[in-house]
C-alpha cells in the first residue's frame, strides 16, 4: 500500500507537470491522427478502385508499420532536427495503415446494389461518394481511426528519446534517477497516464463514432 500512497502523493505534488505532459502528449496525438485521417481517407478514396495503386499504397503503409519506432523516429532527425517534428512525422506514417485499410475495406463493403441504385437515380460520382459511399463506410473508417489513435498514444511515449514532449518524459526522468526517491513513481505516472489517455481518447472517439453514424446503420 506504500507504493500506492506514494504514487498519489507524487501525482499530487507534480500535478501541473502531469497535466502539461498529458496535454503535450495529447497534442502530438491530435496533430498526427487528424493529418493521418485526412491523408489516408483521401488516399483510400483515390486508390479504392485501382487494384495496383491500392495494393502499392497498402504495402508501403504496411512497411512503415514494420520498421521499429526508434529507427523511424531517428531517420527523420537528419531532415528536421530533434524535437517533436521527427516524432510527429514517424507517428503519422504509422497511423496511415489502419485508417487507409479501413477506408478501402469500408468503401468495398458498400453494397453494389446501393451504388447501382444511386447511380440509376442520377447521382454523379461526387454525390455518390459524399452522400452514399462515405457515410456507409464511415463506421469502419472510424474503427480504423480509433486503432491509429491507440497506436499513436502508445508509441508517442518514446518521442522523448528524440527530444520530443509528452508523458515519455516521466518515464525517462524516472529511468535516469532510478533508485533515487520518486523515480519509480515517475515511471508509473508516465505509463499509467499514457494508457489512461489512450482509453479516454478511445472512449471519446467511440462516442463520436456513435454520434456520426446513422441510426439506420446501427445493429
Amino acid at each position: 500500500m506504500d507504493g500506492f500512497s506514494s504514487w498519489f502523493a507524487y501525482v499530487g505534488d507534480h500535478w501541473s507537470d502531469v497535466l502539461t505532459g498529458t496535454l503535450e502528449h495529447a497534442r502530438i496525438v491530435a496533430i498526427v491522427v487528424v493529418t493521418a485521417t485526412v491523408f489516408s481517407v483521401i488516399l483510400g478514396i483515390l486508390v479504392e478502385r485501382h487494384p495496383a495503386a491500392r495494393a502499392a499504397s497498402l504495402s508501403i503503409a504496411g512497411i512503415f508499420l514494420t520498421i521499429p519506432s526508434l529507427a523511424m523516429f531517428a531517420l527523420f532527425i537528419p531532415l528536421v532536427g530533434i524535437g517533436n517534428p521527427p516524432a510527429e512525422i514517424a507517428l503519422f506514417l504509422y497511423a496511415i495503415l489502419p485508417i487507409l485499410r479501413n477506408t478501402v475495406t469500408g468503401l468495398d463493403s458498400v453494397s453494389p446494389a446501393v451504388v447501382e441504385s444511386a447511380k440509376g437515380m442520377g447521382m454523379g460520382n461526387t454525390q455518390q461518394l459524399l452522400q452514399i459511399r462515405l457515410p456507409l463506410a464511415w463506421p469502419i473508417i472510424m474503427a480504423g481511426i480509433r486503432i491509429s489513435t491507440l497506436i499513436t498514444v502508445g508509441i508517442a511515449a518514446i518521442a522523448v528519446l528524440v527530444g520530443g514532449d509528452g508523458l515519455g518524459g516521466f518515464i525517462q526522468g524516472g529511468l535516469t534517477r532510478l533508485g533515487l526517491p520518486n523515480s519509480y513513481e515517475s515511471v508509473w505516472v508516465g505509463t499509467i497516464f499514457t494508457v489512461a489517455l489512450g482509453l479516454v481518447l478511445d472512449i471519446l472517439l467511440s462516442l463520436a463514432q456513435r454520434l456520426t453514424t446513422s441510426r439506420g446503420l446501427r445493429i
Binding site: G154, A157, I158, L161, L178, T191, V195, G198
Partner: peptide
C-alpha cells in the same frame, strides 16, 4: 487487448528493469 495497444513499451520496459 485492444486498448492495450496504447500501453507504452518504454514504460513497461523501465518497470521491468527496475
Amino acid at each position: 487487448a485492444n486498448s492495450g495497444q496504447a500501453l507504452p513499451a518504454y514504460g513497461l520496459l523501465v518497470l521491468f528493469g527496475a
